[in-house]
Nucleic acid binder design. Structure first.
Lengths: 121, 121
DNA sequence: CAATTACATCAACTTTAGTTTATATATAAT
DNA sequence: ATTATATATAAACTAAAGTTGATGTAATTG
């Protein structure tokens, strides 16, 4: 996918904005965006193909994070993230926060790697 | 139109590349790209709406040129134009050159403003 | 090893973008 | 005035991108 086309979609920009704060697995993003999983996977694939994100597979999970290995893409990423209004992603952040909260046990954070279930865990 | 979507189309990039060398009227671009006129007008409208080009109307003609009034767009324009392989536009340049030649009378250039006909002139 | 979870992928469908042919409009030439 | 030129726009069509629901696969748990 064309590098600019990849940035021309609101859903994809929201994903990038979520990843700005660090690596997330697919079901984190699904929950944050409140979208069905194949839809999210579709956009993740587009972003990955365009070189904006990379993945790290571990067990059942695929973790996605921003890929800043290319200078031009990194510049575009920064520009895009900076230009995006905070209110466009505040709900996503809220859902993600609540969900990640639910992933912790009694306030103590349990890394995804050590957990048995991710979604609904 | 979204600023990135505007840059996600090859035809539009070819137009930007042509305009890199200066202002052109629609029929110049139509000839250079060897496309039908409404198609070219469609893409010009997209680029204009995204803020990458501006127009100047004079008589029957509409002259388009790059719009570098916005810093970010200017940066994107430079990046795009620089990254575009020369062979992707060499034929366009050839057709444009031949056509502009035909617009001169006995080797002396006649500005479009002073001409009665543009296309086929 | 049967059931569950996380994710990808596919086929069918919907939506959006791009193309084409025809036509409208404005200016200018005759 | 009539005709021709330059460009825009609209309607019908085609193509590409995005969405959805179903299914496949691999790892994980019980």
């Amino acid at each position: 996918m064309n590098i600019f086309k990849a940035l021309s979609e609101e859903t994809r920009l929201r994903i990038l904005k979520l990843l700005e704060r660090g690596e997330l697995c697919v079901c984190d993003i699904v929950t944050a965006l409140d979208m069905v999983q194949p839809k999210v996977s579709f956009h993740l694939a587009a972003l990955k193909e365009a070189g904006f994100i990379k993945d790290r597979k571990q067990g059942k999970w695929t973790h996605y994070s921003l890929d800043d290995s290319d200078f031009f893409r990194r510049f575009l990423l920064l520009s895009v993230l900076e230009r995006m209004p905070e209110e466009a992603v505040s709900k996503d952040r809220k859902r993600l926060g609540d969900f990640l909260q639910g992933k912790t046990a009694k306030g103590k954070f349990v890394p995804t790697e050590d957990k048995k279930r991710c979604c609904g865990g």
